[in-house]
Nucleic acid binder design. Structure first.
Lengths: 339, 339
DNA sequence: CTGTTAGCGCTTTCAA
DNA sequence: TTGAAAGCGCTAACAG
């Protein structure tokens, strides 16, 4: 009468056999006669049986679930990474629990607790802006839950990560600007506790150095990666007593904000100020055809990270893998198609 | 020596008490002395105990997990909806399993099976483009798993949904174009098995009718919601023997494709052709300042859908709720800020 | 090839 | 206020 679900015992009883045989049949074990298997499978579908993964997982001490922690799902880079993760995981028979830290360390901690309590088999994480202390990650290590950083990583010992070639991408970007005759090149950076922004900054400096352009502190503006920061940053560099003719933007959202503001105040891109910014599939085609972008495929990063994590999961007993996968980016220059 | 996790029995044994008392204490039951509670909690944190939700859920027949099915995570509308869902669910102590159907009915079915097997407490679903048959949803009904449609719904009996005011939004959009002196107004539509596109189409027709503009079949171009469709659709309407001066686009991705193509062939928006398109928070500000948009907040829809679902979940035993929540959209006109 | 048995870690009666 | 015992649904020895 109630919400009674069909169990293997029900099937066993009806068929007059033992429930373990049913279990084996349902798992397609070779240790069950084909005839019995057929009978069981038939009855199972007839009754609308559906395996209870909770019970199965509890017994097997494995959940076929991976946890994913991102700062914010709606950021295009992360949503496309998640798309890649989900797809790869789905193919391998894994579920994905998605959580967003909303850039808060507190939340990140609490999420990790939840994931641990749910006994996920592994974790993919892109750390929050606030995360400067990594004790909560040690919890994962202690519990021997494999985890892989993607995009926003941090430099703790013995970890795996999937990142883009930040330094080189930045270097190429700035060199590109220099070749386009920019000399006063500003850099819109991100939080310096995040390795990716540190490395992009280093790439910026290295390119200047190579081309004997003096580095100026005031041309580097950091921010908290919001769209409004783009506008504010532009104001800051425009207030300088000399003309800025190039801009290397380390974050797509900030780039969007910057470009919108530049449009508003009628400064032309790339004629008045040439810009190179990090971006990704969709945004880059939409954002501004005149913007040269460093394309990073979220999908690809998600896929790579998931594959690496799955490898670590199935490898558990053997020696640990501590791998760094670098996903290549590429510079795409667009001719302005604006009238 | 192995990956031995701390259980309530470990705590009980150490403290020389019974595991059920530990369980009660950890659940903050009033039926255990404060002194014992303190002792237990202290020992638990000391040992780094973490409740095994699998076991707990199995016993309680409840998972505090909701399943979410969307066509594609990386679509901005869906990723912002998911952001809203995750946030609302997280607050209520629920986990979220995200799945993408990739617009395939087959996958949608298989996902529902997985979610059932995982004993999710409820499901939020935005159906795929291919979904014209709803038998797989009946499975949810039979199992009494509450589910709520959001955005892309279908008209099966007794269901709950959170949608936007498609008809009115479309009507307003087209009326807006008419007021801007467009008379030959094209409509880029979507799959007509999806109610939302049906209703947007109806709104388009109604507005024309009200203003005594004859409806012309050839001005309506449907598509499979890809960016490339935007370009193709534009080609189709430009091939018509008269000038199109208005366009109502029922899908943001198609709108993006259309605008890019128009730019490429040097047709000015909105001077040569006025456009109103559905859009959402981020995209709308980026896509094209000259485009008037119907803004739909994915976040808000996700939040509303989750709240409705949670209400249904906790209401399980009592009478069913079959509610339709309509989230209002608003038309945002932008002045072109392009040079 | 199939059955018996024990138990994954937790909650929840029932009894004391 | 605590303990004893049963069992959620499944799997995995171990027997036979």
């Amino acid at each position: 009468m109630d919400n009674t679900e069909i169990t293997i015992h029900d099937i066993a009883e009806i068929l007059g056999i033992n429930s373990s045989t049913v279990s084996r049949a349902l798992n397609n074990s070779s240790r069950v006669a084909q005839k019995t298997k057929d009978k069981i499978l038939k009855k199972a579908t007839e009754l609308g049986y559906q395996r209870n993964h909770l019970a199965s997982n509890l017994r097997k001490r494995k959940t076929f679930t991976i946890g994913v922690i991102v700062p914010r799902i709606s950021r295009h880079f992360f949503s496309s990474a998640i798309a890649g993760i989900e797809e790869t995981a789905f193919k391998a028979g894994y579920n994905v629990i998605i959580c967003q830290s909303l850039e808060s360390l507190e939340r990140e901690k609490s999420i990790i607790d939840t994931l641990l309590a749910n006994r996920v088999d592994g974790v993919l994480i892109s750390i929050s802006m606030e995360t400067k202390n990594y004790d909560h990650l040690k919890g994962l290590k202690q519990r021997k839950i494999p985890f892989v950083f993607f995009d926003r990583h941090c430099d703790i010992a013995e970890n795996s990560k999937v990142v883009i070639d930040d330094f080189n991408a930045a270097f190429t970007a700035v060199e590109h600007l220099i070749e386009k005759n920019s000399t006063n090149i500003a850099h819109f950076s991100g939080p310096q506790n995040l390795e990716i922004y540190k490395n992009r900054f280093k790439g910026y400096k290295a390119a200047l150095e190579k081309h004997k352009i003096p580095f100026r502190e005031e041309l580097v503006v950091s921010s908290s990666l919001m769209e409004k920061d783009g506008a504010q940053n532009v104001q800051k560099i425009l207030a300088l007593p000399y003309k800025i003719d190039g801009l290397f933007c380390a974050n797509d959202v900030v780039a969007i904000g910057a470009i919108q503001y530049l449009r508003k105040i009628k400064i032309r891109v790339p004629e008045d100020i040439a810009i190179v910014g990090f971006s990704n599939e969709t945004i880059s085609s939409v954002i501004e055809p005149a913007l040269t972008t460093i394309n990073q495929s979220g999908m690809q990063i998600g896929e790579a990270a998931t594959n690496l994590l799955l490898a670590k999961i199935s490898n558990e007993n053997k020696k640990q893998i501590h791998e760094t996968i670098i996903v290549k980016t590429n510079l795409i220059e667009r001719k302005s198609t604006l009238r």
